[in-house]
Nucleic acid binder design. Structure first.
Lengths: 261, 261
DNA sequence: ATGCAAATTCCATATAATGAGACTTCGTAG
DNA sequence: CTACGAAGTCTCATTATATGGAATTTGCAT
């Protein structure tokens, strides 16, 4: 099922990280063993290796494994060198203060939405508590808009990986309906989340595209139904468009700098 | 030199991540090969594996490898389940608004300071741009205070790993001087950074300890010499002490919950 | 003390990693 | 247009490493 099996020992070791991450808490050896497709001794050795590598940390007192701080260090570099984060950051500041609502920057990872950054006017924020969070693509504004603009093969792959879990009454729960929606989105240029993931939460999202039309990410403006209707969100189309274009342009410049000493 | 050699293929594969992280930019195969202790084919295969695992991402156009977004996703979970971050977060909010200065939460990783969270009153913040950053321990308030409270063996190990690089005129540049300083710090209960890492930047830091006296992390209040003198910082000893004790207590509760259903 | 489950270690075997070198690709200059 | 060189990719016999069933140890609960 998992593609860990393709990458030998390394894949197996990394699968241990996913097992512990997905559990959302630290686990004892037995818990991990139960979730591991490998025999006891193998699982044990993989955990030893990852612990020795600081990819996991082991608390001797509680005999529990949790994810290691080396991941936090590496993620910092990943964020700075491979995500849209550093480029989009000033634009998110501008957007957040302009619209006075929560704004998100997301990318797609393996068919899922990965939040890269977030701004919320006048709120205490918890950095990594927000960044790195994942969400399904089929029921979020950023997810749907990124799906809509994907190349056919990537889109197929991503659509295959959706769970189509019904979170609310408006959640799109099958591939056919989602494909219809994606056509509309591509025509409109923006996607709306009409309380599809969480009751009371709506958003408008626009894609960040390369000049060749590849999806790099998406930016959304989110609010609650107590303050706005979905129709209200339409007013943000202009500013969203401006901002995503600006990020896109700057990203292109950054990736393909004009020659010079 | 590196302990990657101890952990077989997995260690080698993870070393690729460090190589790319340390470069602070995406690299072509040849660049990586030059930094890799392994032969060409081996290095190539390790990169393939890590790319297939989304620990690295490869841009076909520029033929460059950079760190993958899976790291960001995993780090989010690591932060939530294994760091002091979630526990300390509300206290950092409180502290930052109380003192009106930048506050940091740090832990020690492999002898280095790892920043877990940060608050800065009225500033735009960049989440992972701050979190996950590392700094040397010998020249920072949080670093020194954590060294001071370490158990002898861990302290030895950490002191061994310091570079003792001279950043400014006040940087402590050898183990003996640092040991002296650590004695003073342990007597005082707080450490000061007297422009030892960066000119114009000073801080006061206090440790977060377990009930058994183990160092879990540290919190600092940082400011600039243009606004405060080191002596001014002394006024924050009380509030720092209160906050670190509160975090410590809550962390203990969290780690050793009283029995219940 | 005793029993039981969880955690750890052992070691012959199977399997996967290795790396020298061959090959392909691509950009550049003649 | 072709030749060249540098960068990147692939092959395969050899070697080293990972594997996992089973035995052992640990530690907690009775």
């Amino acid at each position: 099922m998992n593609h860990a099996l393709k990458d030998g020992t390394v894949g197996k070791a990394l699968l241990m990280l996913d097992i512990i991450a997905d559990a959302e808490q630290s686990l004892r050896f037995n818990n991990i063993l139960a979730l591991s497709p490998f025999p006891k001794a193998t699982t044990y050795r993989l955990l030893q290796t990852m612990t020795s590598q600081a990819m996991l940390s082991y608390d001797a007192e509680s005999q529990k494994y949790s994810l290691g701080m080396r991941l936090v260090r590496l993620a910092h570099h990943a964020w700075k060198q491979a995500s849209l984060g550093p480029i989009a950051s000033p634009y998110l500041n501008q957007l957040a203060s302009e619209v006075g609502e929560t704004v998100h920057l997301a990318q797609i990872e393996n068919g899922q939405v990965l939040f890269i950054d977030k701004r919320h006017t006048s709120q205490r924020f918890e950095t990594l508590a927000q960044v790195g969070r994942i969400a399904p693509a089929h029921c979020t504004g950023v997810g749907k808009v990124m799906l809509a603009y994907m190349q056919p093969e990537r889109q197929d792959y991503a659509l295959q990986r959706q769970t189509y879990i019904k979170f609310t009454n408006t959640t799109i729960t099958n591939k056919e309906a989602l494909l219809d929606e994606l056509i509309t989105i591509k025509r409109e240029g923006v996607a709306y989340d009409k309380e599809e993931h969480e009751n009371g939460i709506i958003s408008i999202a626009a894609p960040i595209l390369t000049s060749s039309g590849q999806v790099m990410g998406a930016i959304s403006i989110a609010t609650s139904t107590s303050r706005h209707t979905v129709e209200d969100l339409t007013q943000y189309r202009g500013v969203l468009d401006t901002i995503t274009k600006a990020v896109s342009t700057e990203a292109e410049l950054y990736l393909h700098p004009t020659s010079g000493s």
